[in-house]
């Protein structure tokens, strides 16, 4: 039992490492405290204060520049004047009509429903696929392991979009009556999920092997070890996998535009496709402000999710690099 506790500790330590920002801020606070105690000469101090002020000002300016387009989007969603281009940054007359219109006159809610359905289904499938593949490559030893990993590495280098027309034909064969449907999209988003196992594998690699071994010695099967020991320890990576694959259908344009090309029923669209259509030459004059309102509504929850996810995200992307 004691070994298990010890190992648990290392996992906790790891999750602590994941919260990079907190750590950074704490460290900085400590450094600052210790520095404040020391007395400094006037010249140095002046230089420091000067540098800090310049830094503070430039950061403020930069962050304003960075946030302005999003702010523009936000205020434009309240604009009363019709048309795509307005001569002023802020609307001359403010209104909530765009939002009202969004929910009453357009198919926006339907699109959201479609996307939600697709996202939920595909994130469940993706999570199952990714976690099982990652676990296998992290823990099991078998002959084909290395060749399989190499093949998957190579497959990942082809542009994902390249095989779309063949996938399209395959879907036509498999679902002859409704190949331009949500089922097709779910398949497209989740069928190849196994290829993105790297991050989850990296995580499983850090979970101590001795946990498995202890369980195996106690007579647990591989299935039991995976289900009862590894999965409960991997909450963070499960959440990460589920949420990233949940976000993907909301942001994807390329695949949905291919699968849904030429579908007359706009009620079948997903959010991104429908909103893209609003900005085409014929529609933009009529729908620009509606687009802004829809964008605000779609972007807010996704932005929130991303903010919450970013620490895992950074860890995942740099994980391999930092080890080097």
């Amino acid at each position: 039992m004691s070994t298990q506790n010890k190992n648990k500790k290392t996992v906790d330590q790891r999750t602590q490492e994941l919260t990079n920002w907190k750590k950074i801020d704490q460290m900085e606070a400590e450094i600052e405290k210790s520095k404040k105690k020391k007395k400094r000469r006037g010249g140095m101090r002046f230089r420091r204060i000067f540098g800090d002020t310049v830094g503070q000002i430039s950061l403020t300016v930069l962050s304003i520049i960075w946030i302005i387009p999003l702010f523009y989007l936000f205020v434009q969603s309240f604009r009363k004047e019709p048309g795509a281009w307005s001569p002023t940054f802020f609307p001359q007359e403010w209104t909530l009509d765009n939002y009202k219109r969004l929910f009453t006159e357009t198919k926006f809610l339907q699109w959201c429903g479609n996307t939600l359905l697709i996202a939920v289904c595909s994130c469940i499938i993706t999570a199952i696929f990714v976690l099982s593949v990652a676990y296998v490559f992290s823990r099991m030893k078998f002959k084909a392991r290395k060749p399989m990993m190499n093949v998957m590495l190579i497959l990942g280098m082809f542009p994902g979009f390249m095989s779309m027309s063949a996938v399209y034909f395959l879907l036509k064969i498999l679902l002859p009556n409704n190949y331009q449907s949500h089922i097709s999209l779910i398949i497209v988003y989740s069928a190849g999920a196994a290829l993105s196992y790297y991050i989850a594998k990296g995580f499983f690699d850090t979970v101590p092997k001795s946990l498995d071994e202890a369980a195996r010695i106690d007579g647990a099967s591989r299935f039991r070890t995976f289900y009862k020991i590894i999965l409960p320890l991997s909450k963070s990576i499960i959440i990460y996998t589920i949420l990233t694959s949940f976000i993907a259908p909301w942001c994807d344009y390329i695949f949905v535009s291919y699968i849904m090309a030429g579908v007359p029923d706009t009620g079948m669209y997903t959010v991104s496709l429908g909103m893209y259509k609003w900005l085409e030459r014929e529609m933009i004059q009529q729908y620009f402000t509606t687009f802004c309102a829809a964008a605000v509504i779609v972007a807010t929850p996704i932005t929130g999710l991303f903010m919450w996810l970013q620490k895992y995200y950074v860890e995942g992307v740099t994980g391999g690099a930092v080890k080097g």
Binding site: V133, L155, A193
Partner: peptide, 21 residues
């Protein structure tokens, strides 16, 4: 256990990635 875990993801990968590619 790896056969059980890998079978479904690999079928998906095979049918919708490898064959089309």
């Amino acid at each position: 256990f790896h056969i059980t875990l890998l079978s479904l993801p690999m079928v998906g990968l095979f049918v919708f990635t490898i064959v089309p590619l």
